[in-house]
Structures are given as C-alpha cells and as structure tokens.
Design a protein around this nucleic acid. Structure first.
Ligand SMILES: NC(=O)c1ccc[n+]([C@@H]2O[C@H](COP(=O)([O-])OP(=O)(O)OC[C@H]3O[C@@H](n4cnc5c(N)ncnc54)[C@H](O)[C@@H]3O)[C@@H](O)[C@H]2O)c1
Ligand SMILES: NC(=O)c1ccc[n+]([C@@H]2O[C@H](COP(=O)([O-])OP(=O)(O)OC[C@H]3O[C@@H](n4cnc5c(N)ncnc54)[C@H](O)[C@@H]3O)[C@@H](O)[C@H]2O)c1
Lengths: 223, 223
DNA sequence: GTAAAGCTGTGAAAACCGTAACAGAATACT
DNA sequence: AGTATTCTGTTACGGTTTTCACAGCTTTAC
C-alpha cells in the first residue's frame, strides 16, 4: 500500500480543487446524471479539462480511456481520498458570533463534519443550546474529545487566546485545526492547521476592485 | 502612469500576501517599531526574505539599498496598493446566522471596510439593529448603494438565491462580491468575485488529517 | 464492418512562482 | 579614513503547476 503514502504527495492546488469536484458531482448525482466527461465537469467549474484529468491522475485515474466518469463511482472515491468516507466528528471552540453561526451551519453535517462538541469559557453561554447541543465548559474539553473521538477542531476564539487554546487542543489529541482567528498558530509536526483569514480575502478583493476602477478611469481619459 | 496598469499584473499569490504584510506591520507600528528589515518581517510570517522583497519589487520597492523599511512609510504604501487608503464602504446582503456574525465583526471596520448597509428580505429581521444599524429591506438596496457609494458587497444569502442577488448587485453598481454561498457566480467582466468556501477549507484540512493518521499507522506497523 | 467522433490516461512543453545569489548603497565600527 | 556589516533592488535559476498533445480504447453512425 505504497499508494497511500504517495497519495499524500499531491500539490496543494490539487487538494483545494477536490472539494469543488465533489460538490459539483453531488449536485449532478442529485439531479440524476450518471456519466460525466472531464470536459463537462471542468467547464462548469471554469477550469481546463486537462487539469481535472491531471488532478485525478495523482490518484490513479477513475475510469478507463474511452469511458466517461461514472458519477456513482467518483463520489465515493473522492470522499475516500478527502477522508470523509466516514463522518468526521468535529468540535467548535468559542461560541461567540462566528462560533454560533458555524454551529447553525447545517452544511457542516451534510459535508461529513458533524459537530460533536461546542465549547466556551463564558458562563452566560455554557448550557445554552445550539442546534440541539448545549455549549459546554472548557473543563469538559479533553473528556469529550476523547469520548467522541474528535480529530478536527474549529477555532473561533479571540486572536489573543488562539495560541493557548490551540496548544490545549493539540495536547488533547486534535490533529486538524481550522483557525478563524487572525493569529499565526505554531503547532508541532503531525498537526495540520488551516487559517481562514477574512481580512486576506476581503483585501485581495479590494485590490482587484481598485484595479478595475483604475482601468475604468483610464478608459475614460483615453476616449 | 503606466505603473498603475502594470501594478495590476501581479501574481495572485503575491496579492494574498499583501494583507499579511500589512497586518504584521500595523502590529509592529502599534508597539512602536520604526524600522524593519525584510528578514525580520519575513521570518515572523514564516516566509523567505527574498520572497518578500520580490513581492515588493512588483510595486517598485519601498526603500533604498542599505536602508531597512520604514514602518511608517510602508503601511500607507500597502494600504494604497490594496485600495484601502480611504475606507471602502461595504454592504452585507443576507442577515442570517453568518451575516449577523459578520455585521458584528469589528475587525471589518478596523481593516478599512465599514459596513454601510445590511439587507434582508425576511420581515422579521428588517428593522432589527445590528451594531447600531438597522437591517434594511432589499427594496432600499439600490438607493443605499448609490447614496453610500458602496462598491463591495458581502453575500451571505442561501446558495439558491446567490446568483439572482448577485445579478442585482452588479446592476446596482457593485464591483466586488465577497461570496460565502456555495455557488459559482457568473458575473460580467469588470466585476470581481471572491468565493469563500467553508467546505473547501475544511475538506482540504480533512485530507491532510487523513494523511497524518495514515502515516502514523504506518509508523506503528513498521516498528 | 469500417470510419468517425469522443473519451481517458499520460508524459512532454510551457508558464508560473519561489529561492538563491549578487551588485550596489548605507551604516557601524575601529 | 577605511573596513566590515547590513540592507535593498534586481536578475538568474530551479522547482512546481498548468497546459498542450497524443496514444489507445470505446461507442456511434452509416
Ligand atoms: N465575527 C466574525 O464574523 C468573524 C469573522 C472572521 C474571523 N473572526 C475571528 O473569529 C474569532 C471569534 O470572533 P467572534 O466575532 O465570534 O468573537 P466573539 O467575541 O463573539 O466570540 C469569541 C468567543 O470565544 C470565547 N472564548 C474566549 N476565550 C476562550 C477560551 N480561552 N476558550 C474558549 N472560549 C473562549 C468567548 O467567551 C466568546 O464567546 C476572532 O478571532 C475573530 O477575529 C470573526
Ligand atoms: N452559517 C455559516 O456559518 C456559514 C458558513 C459558510 C457559508 N455559509 C453560507 O452563507 C449563506 C448564509 O448562511 P446562513 O447560515 O447565514 O443562512 P441563514 O438562512 O441563517 O441566512 C440567510 C439569510 O438570507 C436572507 N435571504 C434569503 N433570500 C434573500 C434575498 N433574495 N435577498 C436578501 N436576503 C435574503 C434570509 O432571510 C436569511 O436571513 C449560505 O449560502 C451558507 O451556505 C454559511
């Protein structure tokens, strides 16, 4: 099974496209589409068909030359690769504004990440129900992570607390941290962090908006 | 000023780093640091100093050989480049769970994106105050966008409504859409879209977690 | 049955991005 | 003053990602 190890040596860019493929395929599946060609799938996602085939090639290919892809086979194959063939129990740390929004985000469940623990330190929040689950005191963190076999944590605490909490999560056995706080977390090897920075997103958008406005101004002065 | 047009031909990867530079610089500024070398700044962000200089080089450089960067000059220069030298009035469309979290996210203001309009169609939400602003009916959308000179919209409506609402936003003069709905928006040229897909983020994290778990298992069986 | 069209898997080419190296300039030190 | 050090701007290099091109298989049309 050297394939498994090899399957982890995949460009980040490819990894980020896998969820997009899966999402689109599930959509097709829902409307009864059985077969789909690399061209059809790629065009609906605004990428080149060759890139899609190349991406799939990292995992050995999902069809045979001449045959289009079968949606019913591709969906579970991608789920397997992404690691959500089985539901992945997840925790939310910090039940503030963002944490509450995420706790109420039904798509998390659908996508394979059932929330099995919501934690906070604020006594006013502890016990409050969110989507059928009580907010728990941080005292229970280690116990719940162990019992529910939680491997992924969504971190929505203030930036100042992020590193401290992250350390505790790692200590408790968390392997993946989805971090929404604007802080550069340091974690030991064997733990994956994904930073979701709102500021980066809106600022790169702003950059492009500025470029558009500038080119519009130039067009006017040129006429 | 051919520089302006040229300054828009910058790799995406560089654009995404600019906000990180700015954030760190503001932090340094806050604690009274006046000068900073490319090495110092880069190391604190876990990137190579040469890359930072390379990034800055797209914009002509911010210092002279031999001199470190002056924080007080760099901050406004980056703000200019990103397009937030002046505050950028922003609207939130969809005041549900996520829209409310964002409306209450003070960092948006701080980073230069004051929210000047929150919109929804749900009568129960219209009029409710969020951070000193009432949720407005969508009827007022065009008027408020015009009066407040809003150029960027944060889209937090259900996926099914996203394209329809996006069309209306473009029609009303919006140039940048920060889209949180899992939908591939089609917009005309001259409009920038940035998709923020939670599913992509958590699934790529899941992929890495799966790889970590697999390599741990292999380590055990090898011993 | 045969030709044509459509499809994937695959490796090579091109484009892109990150890294290293260095020249020239400013500063610090002796 | 002179030398060593530190620093940026800039270019050249190397690696990675994307794109292209095509061989070979499969179905469709006639
Ligand atoms: N609100 C947004 O829309 C938004 C968007 C992007 C990023 N963020 C980031 O997400 C984080 C949370 O934002 P928010 O708006 O929800 O803030 P918030 O203040 O509403 O929520 C933070 C929650 O974390 C809890 N908390 C504090 N310390 C804790 C600890 N040690 N352990 C467990 N819980 C703790 C607090 O009690 C609070 O309920 C911040 O870092 C923020 O920068 C927020
Ligand atoms: N909740 C989350 O944490 C989260 C995370 C990532 C992405 N998203 C996405 O963000 C979007 C919103 O999620 P949510 O959880 O806030 O859902 P929500 O149902 O709580 O909120 C959606 C809001 O949009 C309003 N709306 C519906 N149609 C509208 C229209 N035509 N014009 C204006 N407003 C309209 C609704 O009245 C509602 O208040 C969804 O597409 C969701 O997939 C949500």
């Amino acid at each position: 099974m050297a394939k498994n190890r090899k399957s982890c040596e995949v460009p980040d860019a490819t990894i980020h496209r896998l969820p997009l493929y899966l999402e689109k395929l599930k959509l097709l599946q829902a409307i009864g589409v059985e077969d789909v060609s690399s061209r059809q799938l790629a065009e609906s996602l605004d990428i080149k068909a060759s890139q899609l085939r190349h991406d799939f090639h990292y995992f050995g290919g999902f069809s045979r030359p001449g045959r289009p892809y079968q949606v019913a086979k591709l969906v579970p194959a991608l789920e397997q690769i992404i690691g959500i063939a089985e539901p992945v129990p997840t925790a939310i740390i910090g039940a503030g504004h963002l944490g509450q929004a995420l706790a109420n985000y039904q798509n998390l469940d659908v996508q394979g990440f059932p929330v099995r623990g919501i934690f906070d330190t604020n006594p006013k929040l502890i016990g409050v129900e969110m989507r059928g689950q009580p907010v728990r005191d941080m005292d229970e963190l280690e116990k719940v992570i162990r019992e529910e076999k939680i491997k992924i944590a969504i971190l929505t605490v203030p930036a100042a607390q992020a590193q401290t909490v992250a350390n505790r999560l790692v200590e408790a056995g968390i392997i993946g941290i989805f971090n929404f706080a604007p802080a550069d977390l340091k974690v030991p090897e064997g733990v994956a962090v994904r930073n979701e920075r709102l500021a980066v997103g809106i600022m790169s958008l702003s950059f492009k908006v500025k470029c558009i406005l500038q080119s519009q101004e130039e067009d006017i002065t040129e006429v």
